[in-house]
Amino acid sequence: MSDKIQSSLAKRPEHSSDSPLSIHAMTVAYDRKPVLWDIDYDAPNNALVAIVGPNGAGKSTMIKACLGLVPTASGQVEFWGKPYKSARAKIGYVPQRESVDWDFPVSALDVVCMGRYRKIGWCRPVSRAHKSAAMECLQRVGMGEFAKRQISQLSGGQQQRVFLARALAQESDLYFMDEPFAGVDATTERAIIEVLRDLRSQGKTVIVVHHDLQTVPDYFDHALLLNMRVVAAGPVDEVFTTENLHKTYGGRLTLLAEAAEAIARRDRGH
């Protein structure tokens, strides 16, 4: 595709170069079977966005496709009206915790420093300034005292917080987080939520793959309901409805009951 066509996305009426993330007609297929079908989405500025949907709905795949980790069959992805390669410095990423081997000979601080490698540049050692910046990020997630600990000696929740600290060390404006709340303890959940709100107050946008419908109204401003296609997207108040969830999850009643309870709680809160 030529640059001319590439640059035209922001000029389309439905997309804008103000948006930190614009996805246009994106389709992803593994071995002929489409996983994501014709995704159109514009992420809002300065918001916490939850991507929810059943297992196999393509939530992680959508994040990975945006970041260029999974090839797309068609479509375009732009960040502030620019392709990924030019926007990379402003994008942070928290991969799924299970995606790495935690018995790797590095300390928690070493992992957080990885978030600064891009700023440090090729073939240069990690300077003291970068190390102390990484240390600050560890402290923000309440992991300062574990800096020297080898990562296999951390609990699952602590490992998740190390990943979060690494993303903070990237000092980005848009964050993608893949299931950061999966299987974490209460302390970690609180720490993550605190960091997310902190990021929002700094004007940043965080897009989170989330599996717990109950907490969506409490934690997030926007929701993207996904099941291979975008079922609904927008402010939680508008799109997080029983009808939309029904469309997303089909007949899975237990989940719907959970969601209905969450919606009821939210309505009481208003």
């Binding site: 990975k64 990379r88 991969p95 790495v100």
Partner: peptide, 9 residues
């Protein structure tokens, strides 16, 4: 350690 993250950065 984490090739996906390396790619993204």
């Amino acid at each position: 350690f984490n090739d996906g993250f390396a790619q993204v950065t």
